[in-house]
Design a binder for these strands. Structure first.
Lengths: 231, 231
DNA sequence: TAGATTGTTAATCGATTAACAATC
DNA sequence: TAGATTGTTAATCGATTAACAATC
């Protein structure tokens, strides 16, 4: 038995928590290199500019248990996060779309440390098929369903233009893929037992630039008021 | 005067709303191509699998006004969203990190339709400096602050590895950049008047794979129970 | 007119934050 | 012991969803 409680895997964990855990993990790795043995929520909170209570709640879902006054044993907490996120056992994935974004992702070797191994790329373009990108073969798209089925691939990554993305998603679903990381700027239609995570850059960009515009406008307004008040 | 109300730009708009507006916009563009004249929240909701009331609230912030029973005039609503998101006037941006991800972003010509024009790339590697990527010059990193200042650049995009990202952010801030789109997997330290949007793929991946793991586990458990109950 | 849809107010839900007892 | 920190419960906050009157 492990020294930690049973992870709270049965109840669904809030998405924001899932997105913060890797941040904690990254920070802990840094501390480990410095030879630290313990870590408190206060410390993590200060580093990341978050609320200590929030961090404590996030950690709770991983099953890690700390000691009052001391904090968490660094190695234990790191292991608990890795275990909870499934970073110990590797998921194999197929990537479709061997363009520049796809090539970039194929080169992200650190995905392996996060439990993701992209084992092959696919493309509809015969000119790309047969190439090797970062040591991964580019295969013809039509072979995807069969291969995914045979290899038990559960994760698909879509880096094709919007126009071709739905077709790719359909092929993935046909091949038994259960989670799709979608970089194409559109919403895919998939059966409800398939998880989709959209990395829609246009949506992110919109949020960023609108906030910037608002901040700049607010400043202009404030300046105006200051000048007005100074008279 | 326009036929719409004054956009609700003074109060800060919820982030989820900002991220959904581009989805509506994309759908409206599609409808326009089909020659439609009006659109209702119900229709948008069905297409995107969202709640109609939510869409109505989102639209409200853009200042667009609809008519009961009819819905919104398609062109009016489209214009309202574009106006609210600032897609009419273009922001110029600098990108730092002419690697594969950076190159991919430099090729996203549709950013221009969303008010973003990447006007130059920068890199610390002398081997990359002087190249042209998608018609954009790659300049030496150290020239960034001065150039940003002179050109009034307010948006910076970071596509360098984590190790170099903070230094890049510092240079951007020095050059007067006020919004940073950060693709490096770390949290940047910036003055509080600078907006940062993190595109941290490891965080997204963690959320996706944990959800997949949980779904698969849940299924296994359910299967077990079914078998158990069948006895 | 009848009914679909908007606009708006109220209720619900979920996540963050605060409060505080337990404890090493 | 005193004080920092955990674990947990309660309060707050913000976004989503429901309810419903107004209206074309």
């Amino acid at each position: 038995m492990e020294p930690t409680n049973q992870p709270n895997a049965s109840r669904t964990v809030p998405e924001p928590t899932l997105r913060r855990l890797p941040l904690y993990h990254r920070f802990l790795k840094g501390l480990a290199e410095q030879g630290r043995e313990f870590v408190s929520c206060t410390m993590i909170a200060e580093e990341l500019g978050l609320d200590p209570t929030q961090i404590r709640k996030d950690i709770e879902v991983t099953g890690a248990v700390g000691r009052p006054k001391v904090g968490y044993v660094l190695t234990e907490l790191t292991a608990a996060i890795e275990g909870f996120l499934g970073w110990n056992n590797i998921n194999e994935a197929f990537l479709v779309g061997a363009g520049s974004l796809g090539s970039a992702l194929l080169g992200y070797s650190k995905f392996e440390q996060c439990g993701l191994s992209i084992v092959a790329a696919f493309d509809a373009d015969p000119a790309k098929v047969g190439q090797r990108i970062h040591d991964k073969m580019v295969l013809p798209l039509e072979k995807l369903p069969n291969l995914a089925q045979r290899m038990g691939i559960k994760i698909g990554i879509i880096t094709v233009p919007a126009a071709g993305a739905q077709k790719v998603a359909d092929l993935m679903v046909e091949g038994g893929v259960r989670a799709i990381w979608n970089f194409a700027p559109l919403r895919l239609r998939v059966p409800e037992n398939v998880i989709v995570r959209n990395e829609d850059l246009y949506c992110s960009l919109a949020a960023l630039s609108q906030k910037l515009a608002q901040a700049l406008e607010q400043e202009k307004k404030n300046e105006g008021e200051v000048i007005h008040a100074a008279r």
